[in-house]
Structures are given as C-alpha cells and as structure tokens.
Amino acid sequence: MKILDWYILRRYLFTFFSMLLLFIPIMITVNLAEKIGKILEKEVPFWEVMEYYLNFTIVFANLLFPIFLFLSVIWFTSKLANNTEVIAFLSSGVSFTRFLRPYLIGASIVAAIALLLGLYLAPKANTGFNEFKYKYLKGRAGVQDTKHVYSQINDNDIIYVSSFNPSDKSGRNFTLEHFEGNELKYKIFADQIKYDEKDSTYKLTRYVKRVVGQEDDSIFIQRRMNFDFKFNIEEFTPVSYAAETKTYSDLVRFIEREKKKGSSQIGRYEVVKYRKWSLPVSVFILTIIGLSVSSVKRRGGMGVNLLFGISIALVYVFFDKIFGVMAEQSSFSPLVAVWFPNIIFGILAIYILYNAKR
C-alpha cells in the first residue's frame, strides 16, 4: 500500500477503536450505577462482577460495532474534509474510487473482527452475561421468562415444567408423558427436577410414576429418585437468550432440532443466526455512506456531518429493530427481516457514492 492508504487506514482504525474505548466505559458506568444496589445487597464476589462486565463489553461491542464504525468514519473523514486534505488527495489525480480503497481495507479488518465476535466470542460472553443476570440481578423475576415450558423430546416423550431456573438448572412441577402411538403408557410427576452436572443425572423430588394398565393403573411413589433421562438440559433453556449463547454450528443444529419439535421460537432463533452474517456486511455499507456524506467540506462544518450521520444511524437501528421484532412475533421471514435494512442502506450507499464521485 502507498502512503495515502496507510495514512487513511491508520486514521480509520485508530478513530474506531478510540470511539469504542471511549463509549464502553460510559456504558459500563451507567449499567453499574443501575445495578450496584443489587450487587452489594447480594454480596457478589468481586471477580464475578469483573467477569460480568468483561462479558458485558463483548456483548454490547458486538451489537454496536456498525454504529460505532459509522460515526468514527464520519468523524475523521469530516476532519480530513475541513482541513482540505480530501481536496488535496483528489486534486493530485487520485480518483474517488481509489480514495475509497483504504476505507474498504479498514472495513474488511473490522468486519473480520465482527464476524469472529459473532460466531465464537459473543456466544460465550452471552452465556456468562445472562447467567450472572439471572443469578444476581433478576432473581425470581428472571424465571418469568421460562414459565410453562413444553417440549417434545422425541417421538414418544413430552416433558413439561411450570418454571425453570437457569442459574441452578432446576425446574418445578415436572411432568413426563410417554406415548406409544396415540396411547399413553405412563406418566411421571415430580415437585422438582434438578440437573446434577457431576454425574450428568436428573434428581427428582417427590417422584410419582403412574403406569396405565388395561383395567387398573399402577402408581409408584418415591421421595427422591435419580434418572438418566435422554433429553438435554437445554430443553429448558430460557427462550429469551437460548440462541445468543451458541456458536454458529451449534446454533444451526439447535434450530434444526427445534424445528422438529415444532417450537414457536424459530423466528427468533433464525434472526440471531442471520445477524451473525449481516452485521459484518453492514460494516462495508455504513463505511461507504459515512465516507460519501462527510468527504465534502460543508458550511456547517463537522457538526452537520455528525448530525446527518447520527440521523442515519438511528434510522438504521429503527429498521433493524422493527423488522427483527416482526420476524420474532409473526410469520414474517427472518431472512428478509435481517437483510432488509442492509438492502435499503446498500441502495442508499450506491446512490450517495455515485453523487459523491460526481
């Protein structure tokens, strides 16, 4: 690369990471101010709090990558334009397309980081982030998201819990019904089911098994029983964050399994899957828009460009949220919902870039 490429690329990456380092401590401070009461009340160990905010940083950095990038591109490009550096570059015989190249190189680096975060690092961070939240911050209120969980775990067995607590992997009012064809063969009840990670078994409290007979039913009662059920504890995972905690390959398998079970949350899971790919693409779209609108020296200076950039960012987030909710709550296609903002803003990027070249 030439001096121009290195100069712009350094400014591109430096401004982006500086903006991340500037805003992330602000988000942590705001979140800590809101949660500090519960953290002190429950005497959460210091190292768990530090781990929580490390996961918090990764989760929100992954979500806000495109917006931070967009604002940073507008910021440093506006400074170049105000200092007449853009005019100097273009007057030296460099075409606008050639001027765009270091921006696309920088976007490729950031998109690769965003892809790595989305596919591997963010799911692990989401696991720790949500486990801490349900364990210390939400308390029993967190279980509200997991009431009345039904799941068909295979062709013959259906399980149910009235509520499931993800922090200690326990459920209340557990029921298992075993069918052969359309005929119920037996039914298991328990006041509580708890997963024991040490021996990978399920401990049932106040166990009752009712076997359906030809004339009379048989009932077996036991205070405590251990079972090696063939279903995974993930059958009870809260639907509110199940997909966010999985790497891409695990998520694909999880969605296929949920489709076979007839889950009503497929739209939500597929939105998460498609966003892992749409976010890196949005990096290129927003980079082109940011460069095109801020490379011209305006009478209002950098403030006008930032105002325009923030407006576009808000519209992008609005489209992303609205269509995401539509896909999660209705039969609207998750693929269309996730990629529609990129398509609209991609067309806008081409139009603005064309006019910027002129």
Rank of each mutant, 00 (worst) to 15 (best):
V94P: 00
S72Y: 06
M27K: 00
R101W: 10
A112P: 05
N83M: 05
V49L: 12
L9P: 09
L116A: 15
I109F: 00
W75M: 03
S108T: 13
V49C: 11
L32C: 09
G37S: 09
P102G: 09
F17K: 02
G106I: 00
A112Q: 00
E34Y: 04
Y120D: 03
F70W: 03
F17W: 10
K79E: 06
V110N: 01
F16W: 04
N82P: 04
F99H: 14
V30C: 04
I58Q: 01
V59C: 10
E85S: 11
L64K: 13
K124I: 08
F14A: 15
W47T: 09
G106C: 04
L100I: 10
E34R: 12
V86A: 07
G93T: 12
A111M: 01
S92N: 14
P66R: 07
L20T: 14
W75A: 01
A33N: 14
K79D: 08
S78E: 07
I39R: 01
L100K: 06
A33W: 10
T97A: 14
F68E: 05
A81T: 11
A114R: 01
L80I: 12
W75L: 07
I24S: 10
M27A: 12
I67K: 13
W6T: 12
G106A: 04
R101N: 12
R98W: 06
I8F: 05
F56D: 08
V94C: 05
F89M: 15
A122W: 00
F16A: 09
A88L: 06
I109C: 02
F70S: 03
E41D: 15
F46V: 12
L71A: 02
Y12K: 02
L115A: 12
S78L: 04
P66V: 00
L20Y: 07
M27T: 10
G118K: 00
L115M: 13
F76Q: 03
A61Y: 02
I28F: 12
S108R: 01
